[in-house]
């Protein structure tokens, strides 16, 4: 469980984070979004106890990270924006060192190291010097490092950055499979990633939360705002009127080259009738599909509306 209350961080006159509050339960995977410089990394650094806030509190599994940092930090796994690697160590030596400073018990240490190496796909490079590894492997060693203490709170700052498409998919699968009974906070620039992995979304801009929503609710909202694209061979006469006559349609907007954007009344399904109408009138039906609001559009909307 992660409980963040009224978090504020100021660097001199600059306010990086302002009155940020949210709460996550076990099993939640939070997608933490925002434009560059919005305060994502600062927030994550505060939650992990790397730096104290100017104001506000953070509780990790009920323990205040600033009153009892050693106890709270035990259950945190953290992958910073730049993976914290010692280039002169082998992967095994490095993970063993991390296990030691994260207070992993002596008995479980070895099995834990092998388990995370297996999960992150770095077992075959375990004897290589980290400085000689490719960027993808380095990123995966960084993720392995965050998992070595079997954390119940996992905080990942842009985990898929610098990976190739196949590795990105692998890491997403890994994060998904890891969530289980953990609390995961994930910051990213790749919005589809959020739709794929996360159960909750927070978008921040200028250090403030501009949107906080469960992904389920968000996708329902996006779907309900759905419109339908109808493409025919050419713009015919009276098409708009005929579509309106179907009822259940709140607006029809003709576009170029036989396209029509149809917004149905809330909750109404008009696609079946539309297709019949198009065929019966011989409009030359080429395409009929829903136009979904993507997370990108939601993101851009909240970011820009906040700016105005």
């Amino acid at each position: 469980m992660v409980y963040v209350h009224n978090l504020t961080k100021r660097y001199g006159n600059l306010t990086a984070v302002e009155n940020l509050s949210f709460q996550l339960e076990r099993g939640d995977v939070l997608g933490f979004l925002g434009p560059n410089g919005a305060g994502k990394t600062t927030t994550m650094r505060i939650i992990t106890g790397y730096m104290p806030p100017t104001k506000g509190t953070v509780h990790i599994e009920g323990v205040d990270i600033f009153d009892e940092p050693l106890q709270a930090k035990r259950v945190i796994g953290y992958l910073p924006e730049n993976p914290p690697l010692y280039n002169d160590m082998t992967v095994m030596e490095y993970l063993s060192f991390v296990a030691d400073i994260k207070k992993v018990g002596r008995k479980e240490k070895k099995s834990r190291i092998f388990y995370v190496m297996e999960r992150c796909g770095i077992a075959e490079v375990r004897r290589r010097i980290i400085g000689h590894l490719s960027k993808g492997y380095r990123q995966r060693v960084g993720i392995a490092q965050a998992l070595v203490n079997n954390p119940s709170v996992l905080i990942l700052d842009e985990p898929t950055i610098g990976l190739d498409p196949r590795q990105i998919i692998e890491i997403r699968e890994l994060i998904k499979s890891l969530s289980g009974d953990r609390t995961v906070i994930l910051s990213t620039h790749i919005l589809p990633e959020v739709t794929m992995i996360c159960s909750k979304v927070i978008i921040i801009n200028h250090g403030k939360i501009v949107l906080e929503e469960s992904l389920q609710k968000l996708s329902e909202d996006m779907r309900s705002a759905e419109s339908i694209l109808l493409r025919t061979r050419q713009n015919g006469e009276g098409v708009v009127e005929k579509i309106h006559a179907l009822g259940n349609v709140s607006s029809v907007k003709p576009g170029a080259a036989g396209e029509y954007i149809i917004v149905p009344r809330k909750g109404a399904e008009v696609r079946e009738e539309l297709s019949r109408l198009a065929v019966e009138n011989d409009w030359g039906l080429l395409e009929l599909r829903p136009v979904t609001n993507t997370l990108e559009e939601v993101f851009l909307k909240v970011i820009s509306s906040e700016g105005n």
Binding site: R45, T48, G49, Y50, P69, L70, Q71, K73, R74, I76, Y78, P80, E81, N82, P83, P84, L85, Y86, V98, I101, K102, K103, Q145
Partner: peptide, 10 residues
């Protein structure tokens, strides 16, 4: 950047 690892460790 390993300072971030050290200072977030218990």
């Amino acid at each position: 950047y390993t300072a971030e690892l050290l200072f977030t460790s218990p």
